[in-house]
């Protein structure tokens, strides 16, 4: 939310994200950065996920309580982490775009949205599959599942709003405002969902998926998969940003050509 009266640009220069976007706003610099960052993220992600899969599926012991179903955690928890992290990243990029009008920040936010939606969706699906054997139900309306469902809806709302507005600049501005409103609201939504959960399930003993404590042999595959998924998402976002820059360049050329004709 922007105070009326434009913020003098110098005052905000200290924000880390802004410095990053200011630096990368120069297309050549972004090109140079992404040329290195994209393959690094991609290959590292591949290696980490491969190692995580090996440990997660074959080389880690079964859980004392949950048997082999604990292995679902190694794809479920990283998806949940990504859904949340990508939402914050989208909100932060939207904020930078809204205040300083760096187009690159908007490109980043737009690139993040569908990726975040997919991981939120994967988190919900794998959570349901994990819930069936451990809770005895595909879906339980508890605070965490419901929060993730809301997260999914927030991503969908962002995508739908962007898609519904034809004017590109107006779509970007509107979507940025929506992402910021969502970010401001998120703590209240979380609190209300916890509150609601407390009223509904008071005293109910559900066999919680997070068991007593996480064991070291489970932490390794989880950490590998989480790091691998994070790098994979980074790769996806940067790759999509480059595609978007190409598409914009092509659209500009086309506009020029049509103006000449």
């Amino acid at each position: 939310m922007r105070p009326s009266g434009a913020c003098p640009p110098d005052q905000g220069r200290l924000t880390g994200a802004n410095i990053m976007f200011s630096y990368l706003a120069n297309p050549q610099r972004f090109e140079k950065f992404s040329r290195i960052a994209i393959p690094v993220c991609g290959w590292l992600a591949l290696a980490l996920i491969a190692a995580g899969l090996w440990y997660g599926l074959f080389s880690s012991p079964v859980d004392r309580f949950q048997g082999d179903t604990i292995r679902i955690m190694y794809v479920h928890v990283p998806s949940a982490w990504l859904a949340l992290a990508l939402y914050f990243a989208m909100g932060g990029a939207s904020f930078v775009y809204f205040i300083w009008r760096h187009n690159l920040a908007d490109t980043a936010a737009a690139s993040i949205a569908p990726i975040g939606a997919v991981f939120a969706g994967l988190c919900l699906i794998t959570g349901a599959i994990w819930g069936r054997p451990t809770w005895g139900a595909w879906w339980v309306w508890d605070a965490r599942l419901t929060s993730m469902l809301i997260q999914f809806l927030l991503f969908l709302g962002y995508i739908a709003l962007r898609a519904a507005i034809e004017d590109e600049r107006l779509a970007a501005r509107s979507a940025a405002i929506l992402a910021m409103v969502g970010l401001v609201n998120l703590p209240i939504v979380r609190f209300s969902v916890e509150w609601w959960d407390g009223i509904l399930h008071q005293g109910a003993t559900v066999f919680r998926a997070d068991g007593p404590q996480i064991h070291g042999s489970q932490l390794l595959p989880l950490a590998l998969m989480a790091a691998g998924f994070t790098l994979m998402a980074g790769w996806m976002v940067l790759y999509r940003m480059r595609s978007a820059i190409m598409a914009r360049k092509a659209a500009n050329l086309q506009r020029l050509r049509e103006a000449r004709a």
Partner: peptide, 27 residues
């Protein structure tokens, strides 16, 4: 306001407003 001037604005309004309305619904 965010979906003013959008195609099928009503649908977008409902989709945007629903998650944000959760706290008020709950309380």
């Amino acid at each position: 306001a965010l979906s003013a001037g959008a195609r099928r604005g009503g649908l977008v309004i409902a989709l945007i407003a629903a998650p944000l309305a959760i706290p008020l619904m709950v309380f």
